[in-house]
C-alpha cells in the first residue's frame, strides 16, 4: 500500500428510502433505511460495517453495488459516480465490484452446476473468452478457494454450507474484482467452518489485493477482520474509527453498549464485566425518534438530544462520531471489557 492510500470509493450524502404501500385507503408509509451516509473506503483496507437488524447495513452494501438505487447522494468509484452511470456501463463496471451473500445455498442457482455458477459472471462480463478459457479460469479460482477440481460438475445441494460459501466466493472472485462486499458471509455457518472462511477471505485479500467491505452483526468477527469499523444505528452512521480505537476508546454510547453486549468466550472476563445493557429494543425505522435516534435507549441522553439531530463530526485522525455529548462522556478508567 502507498503512504497515502487512495480512496477507492467515496460515499456522499447517501439516502435510501423504501415506501410501504399501506393499502388503497391508508397512508403511504416511508421507511428511511439510510440517511446522511458519508464515508470513504481506501484501497486495500477492510471496512467493517456493524449494526443490529434493521440498521440498514445490508441496504448500504447493496446501494454501493447499485443493486438498489439510492434516492439521493453519490457513490464515487475512483471519482466516477456509479449512481449516474448508464445501465450498460454499470454492467461492465460490475467486474470490479462483487458480493458474497449470507445464505450460501440460497445464493447458488439450484439448477446449475458448480462450474456453471462460477462461470456465470464471465459469460456476460468477459464474452471474449471461449469455453476452454472460461473453464480454465473456473478451475483456477476453485483451487484458490479450496474446492477440488472434481467438484465442477456437481450441484449446490450436494454441498455443505461451508463449501457452498466457497463456491459463492469463487463466483465473486472470477471477474478479478477490486472490491468485494461480504454481506454476513459467515453468520449462517458452523463455528469451525466460520473460522476457515474468515481465514480464506484474509488470504484471498492478500493474494489478489482486494478491498473488502465486511458487513456483520457480530462485532467480534468484524473486529477480527477489519481495519476500520463503521457502526450504523437506524440507518445513520454513529461512529467510524479504526478497530483498535473503537475497541479501546468507543466514543458513541451506542458503540459502547454494543461492545459490552458482545459475548466473550472467556468465563472469568464474562462474569466480571458489567454489561451496559441497553434498555428496550430498536425503535421502528418507520417512525424513528426525533433528534438523535439513539436517545430513547441512551444512558446519557439529555432533553436537547430530542431536539436536534447530532451531526457527524470529524474528530481526531479522521474518526467520525455522531453524538451531541461525546466530549462530555468520559471513557471509564477500566477499559470497557475488563482488561
Amino acid at each position: 500500500m502507498d503512504q497515502t492510500p487512495i480512496n477507492l470509493l467515496e460515499i456522499k450524502d447517501l439516502k435510501k428510502t423504501f415506501s410501504l404501500t399501506g393499502g388503497l385507503f391508508s397512508r403511504r408509509l416511508t421507511l428511511t433505511a439510510l440517511e446522511n451516509i458519508n464515508f470513504n473506503i481506501r484501497q486495500g483496507e477492510t471496512l467493517g460495517i456493524v449494526g443490529e437488524s434493521g440498521c440498514g447495513k445490508s441496504t448500504l452494501g447493496r446501494c454501493i453495488l447499485q443493486l438498489l438505487a439510492p434516492d439521493e447522494g453519490q457513490v464515487l468509484w475512483l471519482g466516477q459516480d456509479l449512481t449516474r452511470l448508464p445501465a450498460e456501463e454499470m454492467r461492465q463496471r460490475r467486474a470490479d465490484l462483487q458480493i458474497i451473500f449470507q445464505d450460501p445455498l440460497a445464493s447458488l442457482n439450484p439448477r446449475m452446476t458448480v462450474g456453471e455458477i462460477i462461470a456465470d459472471p464471465l459469460r456476460t462480463l468477459r464474452p471474449e473468452l471461449n469455453k476452454d478459457e472460461r473453464r480454465a479460469r473456473v478451475l483456477k479460482t476453485m483451487e484458490a478457494v479450496g474446492l477440488l477440481p472434481e467438484m465442477i460438475n456437481r450441484y449446490p445441494h450436494e454441498f455443505s454450507g461451508g463449501q457452498a460459501q466457497r463456491i459463492g466466493i469463487a463466483r465473486a472472485l472470477i471477474t478479478e474484482p477490486k472490491l468485494i462486499v461480504c454481506d454476513e458471509p459467515v453468520s449462517a455457518l458452523d463455528v469451525s467452518i466460520q473460522a476457515q472462511i474468515l481465514n480464506l477471505l484474509a488470504e484471498l485479500k492478500d493474494e489478489f489485493g482486494l478491498t473488502l467491505i465486511f458487513i456483520s452483526h457480530n462485532l467480534s468477527v468484524v473486529r477480527h477482520v477489519s481495519d476500520r469499523i463503521l457502526v450504523l444505528y437506524l440507518g445513520r452512521i454513529v461512529e467510524l474509527a479504526t478497530g483498535d480505537e473503537i475497541y479501546e476508546q468507543p466514543r458513541h454510547p451506542y458503540t459502547r453498549a454494543l461492545l459490552t453486549a458482545v459475548p466473550i468466550p472467556d468465563p472469568k472476563l464474562a462474569r466480571q464485566r458489567n454489561i451496559d445493557a441497553l434498555k428496550g429494543e430498536i425503535p421502528s425505522p418507520i417512525n424513528p425518534p426525533s433528534g438523535c435516534t439513539f436517545r430513547t435507549r441512551c444512558r446519557f441522553a439529555k432533553p436537547f438530544c430530542a431536539e436536534t439531530r447530532p451531526p457527524l463530526e470529524t474528530i481526531e485522525d479522521g474518526r467520525l462520531v455522531a453524538c451531541h455529548r461525546w466530549r462530555e462522556i468520559e471513557v471509564p478508567e477500566e477499559a470497557v471489557l475488563g482488561e
Binding site: 447493496r62 453495488l65 443493486l67 454492467r91 461492465q92 460490475r94 467486474a95 465490484l97 462483487q98 458480493i99 451473500f101 449470507q102 445464505d103 440460497a106 445464493s107 447458488l108 442457482n109 439450484p110 456465470d120 459472471p121 456476460t124 462480463l125 459463492g168 463466483r171 465473486a172 471477474t175
Partner: peptide, 22 residues
C-alpha cells in the same frame, strides 16, 4: 427475491438472461 438472482445481477446479467437462465 432469492439471493442467487441478486448474485446474477451483481455478475452483470441482463434482465432477459436472469429471467430465462435463472
Amino acid at each position: 427475491e432469492r439471493e442467487f438472482v441478486e448474485a446474477a445481477k451483481a455478475g452483470g446479467a441482463k434482465p432477459w438472461t436472469i429471467i430465462f437462465r435463472h
